[in-house]
């Protein structure tokens, strides 16, 4: 088990190097550059000032040299400074990261708590009214564009009913609230973004647990359990559910990249002060160091998620451990 963990952890490093390399090269090969974005055709800015700016961010060097310098600093956790406000990139990301993690963790929790029961009940009562209705519901949720769903919810619950706040996480007035009220306000702000995220990711998890349950229900040991006269409830909960839920752990790892990808657009709509919005703003401003930083941190989060789900899977299913 220890070897397995070490192997998986070591695997993260080449992945990071590969992904950061692609990001870096694509970013620098693409037309348009921060210098002209910043100064444009402004005649007031002299050639030497432009050259100075280029030198400051290594933009005057060939791309391989730039990448080498970047990756050397990267291993000391130094992502350079933002071109927009000169703050260290790592500091900018770290102030935004908790908001993203909070949103994703709550969404993931909500998705798991709703999707698994839906899948289990659908499998047990296959082709029942519940199964058919839920199939349609999760499919519609999956097909609905997240940003559109967000707009509809903002319109209905924000503008029309004025039930939930439509943007931001901690407005100015939270500074004057006591601890309990702060948490309540935060949860209040989480409702709409979490709902949108959850609706979008319900489908894959609930369908997966449904088909996994159905598959296990066809196994011989389930037949045995029924044949020896166990009550149906025990067969489902103790024999089927336990075995069916095993592979679902891996879906967690696959859901994470989707959630993180989704955060770039959702955080922009809900003005959520997270890393996704930071990344969007950085791209729009050609802020190279921040773009790299956000890309790499998003990848690290994804890789850690996959790592954790692999480890959990190995923990719950001994066959994996012995095979590798």
């Amino acid at each position: 088990m220890k070897n397995y963990i070490i192997k998986r952890l070591l695997f993260i490093i080449p992945m990071l190097v590969g992904i950061s390399c692609i990001l870096f090269v694509v970013m620098h090969l693409a037309p348009g550059d921060p210098t002209s974005m910043r100064y444009g055709l402004n005649p007031e800015v002299s050639e030497s000032a432009r050259a100075n700016f280029n030198r400051m961010y290594d933009l005057d060097k060939p791309i391989p040299v730039q990448y080498w310098r970047w990756i050397k600093r990267f291993f000391t956790m130094d992502f350079g400074k933002s071109m927009i406000d000169d703050r260290p990139v790592i500091e900018k990301i770290m102030t935004r990261l908790p908001a993203t993690i909070l949103l994703q963790a709550v969404s993931l929790l909500v998705v798991f708590c709703i999707a698994i029961p839906i899948g289990v009940i659908s499998a047990v009562k296959r082709n029942s009214l519940f199964d058919r209705v839920m199939t349609i519901v999760v499919f519609i949720g999956y097909a609905a564009p997240a940003f559109w769903l967000a707009l509809v919810l903002i319109f209905l619950f924000g503008f029309k009913m004025q039930l939930f706040p439509v943007s931001g996480m901690t407005p100015w007035y939270t500074a004057y609230l006591d601890e309990g009220a702060k948490i309540k306000d935060l949860l209040w702000h989480l409702v709409l973004p979490v709902t949108v995220t959850a609706i979008g990711s319900l489908a894959s998890l609930s369908r997966y647990s449904r088909s996994s349950m159905i598959e296990v229900m066809g196994e011989n040991y389930v037949l045995t359990a029924r044949a020896k006269g166990l009550p149906e409830k025990r067969v489902i909960l103790n024999h089927v559910l336990r075995n069916a839920l095993l592979p679902i752990v891996t879906v967690l790892g696959l859901t994470l990249p989707v959630l993180i990808s989704g955060s770039f657009i959702l955080e922009t709509i809900f003005a959520w002060p997270g890393m996704g919005r930071l990344g969007y703003e950085a791209i729009m401003n050609y802020d190279y160091p921040v773009v790299m930083g956000v890309g790499v941190i998003a990848t690290v989060l994804t890789l850690l998620g996959i790592f954790l789900s692999d480890i959990t899977y190995a923990l719950v299913d001994p066959r994996i451990r012995f095979n590798k």
Binding site: M15, I19, I22, L23, V26, M27, A30, P257, I260, S261, G262, F264, I265, G279, Y280, I283, V291, V294, G295, A298, T299, T302, L303, I306
Partner: peptide, 12 residues
């Protein structure tokens, strides 16, 4: 697989 795909697409 591990790429934040939408981020890459947005950037490109």
């Amino acid at each position: 697989y591990c790429f934040p795909t939408f981020f890459l697409i947005m950037m490109v």
